[in-house]
Structure formats: structure tokens, C-alpha cells
Design a protein around this nucleic acid. Structure first.
Length: 466
RNA sequence: GGUGCGGUAGCCAAGCGGUUAGGCAGUGGAUUGCAAAUCCAUCUAGAUCGGUUCGACUCCGAUCCGCACCUCCA
């Protein structure tokens, strides 16, 4: 089996082969910390989470870098509005970001570099670009990258260099630049920047946006690394410009694979802060949804497909997760505390291959989830015929644990049954033994108020969290 | 205008040149003191028009519609 991923650079699926054969180095574009990230942003981080988890499932090691953009127009403007030093302002949103990642059960990356901690590295790259003739300084003091000097410019986005001249949004007034599409490496200081300023060989100022990713990725992963990811809106200009400046500076291939995820759509439009049609994770959690339900939502569509966000599907995810929980709880009850592992029952013997086969194909999550639900259905059916042995059940819980290293939503945390609730259950059992159905139903309602539902099974009553 | 993605049943969403994807919801039944869960059965597909083929949801062409990117963007 081979894990194939869609490489935006080649526009085709390619087998993932890390350059050292065993350890994948990946750079994933992270948040700009001027506000709470919305769930459209988390769609990208969720895709990256699935990717790193499946890479590990395939037996590779992973080093993931996710940057924090803590200096740009928006962070500067907002921090000044709030009268806070930039670092104090961004800290609030950086902290919130990590809280959200935990709620969504997104595995932490190995590195979370902040742009403001890598200014010397950025300046070093710009210096090199000057030496090699790719950079120039304009009259206003800003430093630009000359895209005409880089032969491969446009190779990722497959730009029509001629067509760009008549591009819809090229600002004709940008006469400081040699070519309207040249981008800033270093922005000269303007009063609006307040005290956000660094010294450089080209005067006071601050870095351009694209240079931060080049500096941090190459510093932490090397001049050439394996995978670079982001949303499709990053293909151009951000990633195109990163390639231009990095490859011009080093003369090496910057990233071997480029992967991009589709958008989160709300009411037929891309969710974005500028359109104002966004939800933050904390808003959704306040509405009573769980991080796990949101995780299921963000995960369960193929990453390159746009994902239509609707509360209705969050509700249906709750039902689907209940079905998974019901199954897993049943299996776990049979497995008990025994550690002896038996063979998988016939109905689960192909599940792992079916799951991996789907995931190998550019992370076909729909196929992978179908493998899970096929097993649940076949298992429920088989258990009506013949009970599992504890070692068989243990084999299944082990399989589930393995698959959940990828999905991160199969196994929910055990709920402790409060003493009060187990007292109620006892009282109800007595009532039922006495065939006092009215009392039994009254207690069942009382349990529901506590958030628990009771099921009467041949093995006795069972409690489930609502 | 350039470039790219898509249109699959009530909703969400896959693979596949011929054989039930899957999830949610609905209906009928089994089961249950009643439920819940589960099982069984069942309803609703492939934007439109052509072409290739023994056979097309799948390949090709055209048309229509939607979304995105073309220097804020995950």
C-alpha cells in the first residue's frame, strides 16, 4: 500500500515519499492572530491534522510547523485601536487558538513559530535576494521582489503571465513597483505602524507577509522539505511568492508536495471574515454543540471539496456519533478488563484494509468512514446471532484505538456515573421488578433530567449519557 | 476576460464502464410493559442535450447553472 496525495504543483496524485525515506517534514500555514479563528480556518487545520495523523498511521515520523502570523496590517491596526503593545494584543488570540485546537482534538504541531521572533532570519533572506539581484528598493523605502527575474514564477498557480496584466484587481496606481505584481519583502515604516518597527539594512520597517513563511519554514525544516499546505486561496499569491523568494535565495526546490484544502461554504458563499458570514468555534460550542461534533463535520468531507456548513448537519452528526458510541460501548462491555487479545471476528477482518485503502487514495475520508460504519452494521448484526468472546472484543477495541489515532473521534471519553444517578437506576429496577410501570417511567424521566437515558436490555438496564 | 472546482436521491456525501457505497431523516415490521438501542424490509439518484459502447452516473463533446482565485484571505 502506498499513500497517495494530490500535489497542486503537478495537479496529480503522487505517492508520498519523504526525502529521507522515513520522516515527513511539513509546513502548514497557520492563523493570523488578530481575532478568533472561525471554523472555516479550522477546516484547514483539521485537514492538516488528518494528514499528519495518517502520515503517522503509515509508519512515517512527522515534524509539523505551523506559523502564527502576529504582525501584519490587521494585527497592527487592531492593537493600536485597543492601545495594547502588539505582543500583548496577539497573545489573547494565540491562547484562544490553542484552546480551540484542544476542543477539536487537533494534535499539536511540533513547532508554532511566531513571525516576530524570526525577523533576523527574514532579513537574511532578503539580503541574499538583493545579492542575487531579485530584490530592489523603491522610492518609498520598501523592498520588493522582482517576479520577472524568477523564471519559474507562476508554476504553482499556473498563471498566465500575459493575462495577469489585465487582471481584475491589479492596482494601476502602484507605480513604485517595476511590475504591478511584484510583492513586498520589506515594508518601509509608516506612521500607522505605531511602535511596530524593526531596523534593517534598508531602513526602519517591517517584513512583508510572504517572507515570514519562507524564513520560518526553512529555519525549522531546512531549505527543502516535504509538504507545504494551506487553503486553496493561498495558492496565489502567498505560496507562489514563497516559492519565488525561497527558491531564488537557495537555488533548491522549496517544497516537494503542495496540498490545498477547499473552503467552508455558508449559504453558498465562502466563509470569511471580510464577508462577515463566519462562526467562531466558541459561538458554536455555546450553542450546545460539542467539539467532537464539529470535528466530525470538518473531517467528514473530502479535504479538497468545498464543505457546506449547516447546523442541520451538526445535528445529524450527533446521531451518527451516538451510533458509533453505542457500538463501541457494547464491545467494550464484552471486552471487560481482560487483556487477552483474540482474533478479529470475520466481520471486522477487512475493516482495517478497507479503511487504509480509502485513506491511501488522497485521504478519501468518505470511504474510510464507510469502512467504520460497515463494520458497525455487520457487528451489530453478528452479535444478535452469537455473542463475542472477551478476547475477540478486545481485538476490536484495539482496532478501534488504532483507527482512532487517525480519526480522533471514534472513542469518546468515559462518563462517570454520578452516585445520584445510580441510586435512581436502582430504584427504577426495583419498581420494574414490582411491575410498577408508572413509578418506573417517572424515574426514567427523572434520569433524563439528569442527562441520562436508560435502556432495558436482556442483560439488564444500561445507562447512556444523553 | 484568464484559471480552477463542482452540479448524485428529502438532506449530507463517495467509489465505479455492467455487481447495495456510507451517514442523517422518513415509512412498514421484529423486539420491548412502554421506550431506547438493534435487526429486517422499504421509498427517493446522477443538471440538460448529443456521441462512443453490447452496456454510461462513470469516457468524449456541447450547453446551462453554482462557487472560487486573478495581489486581505485557511
Amino acid at each position: 500500500m502506498a499513500f497517495k496525495i494530490y500535489n497542486t504543483m503537478s495537479r496529480s496524485k503522487e505517492e508520498l515519499l519523504p526525502s529521507d525515506g522515513k520522516h515527513v517534514r511539513m509546513y502548514t500555514c497557520g492563523p493570523t492572530v488578530y481575532n478568533y479563528a472561525h471554523i472555516g480556518n479550522y477546516r484547514a487545520y483539521m485537514f492538516e491534522d488528518l494528514l499528519r495523523r495518517y502520515i503517522k498511521f503509515c509508519g512515517f515520523g512527522v515534524t509539523q510547523v505551523q506559523n502564527l502570523t502576529d504582525v501584519d496590517d490587521k494585527t497592527i491596526r487592531s492593537s493600536i485601536e485597543q492601545g495594547l503593545p502588539l505582543k500583548d494584543f496577539t497573545k489573547k488570540y494565540i491562547d484562544a487558538f490553542f484552546v480551540d485546537l484542544a476542543k477539536l482534538n487537533i494534535e499539536p504541531a511540533e513547532h508554532y513559530p511566531a513571525a516576530t521572533d524570526f525577523i533576523p532570519e527574514m532579513i537574511a533572506i532578503i539580503k541574499t535576494l538583493f545579492e542575487k539581484g531579485y530584490a530592489y528598493q523603491s522610492d518609498d523605502g520598501s523592498v520588493y521582489y522582482s517576479i520577472d527575474k524568477f523564471e519559474g514564477y507562476g508554476k504553482l498557480a499556473r498563471l498566465d503571465r500575459e493575462g495577469m496584466r489585465s487582471g481584475a484587481r491589479v492596482d494601476q496606481d502602484e507605480y513604485d513597483k517595476d511590475n504591478a505584481a511584484d510583492f513586498a519583502l520589506w515594508k518601509a515604516y509608516v506612521p500607522e505602524d505605531g511602535d511596530v518597527v524593526w531596523d534593517s539594512p534598508w531602513g526602519k520597517g517591517r517584513p512583508g507577509w510572504h517572507i515570514e513563511c519562507s524564513a520560518m519554514s526553512m529555519k525549522l525544516l531546512g531549505d527543502s522539505f516535504d509538504i507545504h499546505t494551506g487553503g486553496v486561496d493561498n495558492i496565489f499569491p502567498h505560496h507562489e511568492d514563497e516559492i519565488a523568494q525561497s527558491e531564488a535565495a537557495t537555488g533548491k526546490i522549496y517544497s516537494k508536495y503542495w496540498m490545498h484544502c477547499g473552503y467552508l461554504i455558508v449559504d453558498g458563499k465562502k466563509m470569511s471574515k471580510s464577508l462577515g458570514n463566519f462562526y467562531t468555534l466558541r459561538e458554536i460550542l455555546e450553542m450546545g454543540y460539542t467539539g467532537r461534533e464539529v470535528r466530525y463535520e470538518l473531517l467528514s468531507s473530502h479535504y479538497r471539496q468545498s464543505l457546506n456548513f449547516a447546523f442541520k448537519s451538526l445535528d445529524s452528526n450527533r446521531s451518527a456519533l451516538k451510533r458509533l458510541d453505542e457500538f463501541y460501548t457494547t464491545i467494550q462491555e464484552v471486552a471487560g478488563t481482560g487483556s487477552k487479545v483474540g482474533d478479529l471476528p470475520e466481520w471486522a477482518s477487512g475493516t482495517r484494509d478497507q479503511f487504509a485503502g480509502a485513506m491511501d487514495d488522497d485521504m478519501n475520508i468518505s470511504g474510510a468512514m464507510a469502512a467504520i460504519f460497515d463494520a458497525v452494521h455487520a457487528g451489530n448484526k453478528a452479535m444478535l446471532e452469537a455473542p463475542l468472546t472477551p478476547p475477540q472484543a478486545r481485538a476490536i477495541t484495539n482496532l478501534w484505538a488504532e483507527l482512532d489515532t487517525v480519526l480522533g473521534l471514534l472513542i469518546s471519553k468515559e462518563e462517570e456515573v454520578p452516585a445520584e444517578v445510580s441510586e435512581l437506576l436502582k430504584a427504577r429496577t426495583s419498581a420494574r421488578d414490582a411491575k410498577d410501570w408508572a413509578e418506573s417511567d417517572r424515574i426514567r424521566d427523572a434520569l433524563a433530567e439528569q442527562g441520562w437515558t436508560v435502556k432495558d436490555t436482556p442483560e439488564g438496564p444500561k445507562l447512556r449519557k444523553l
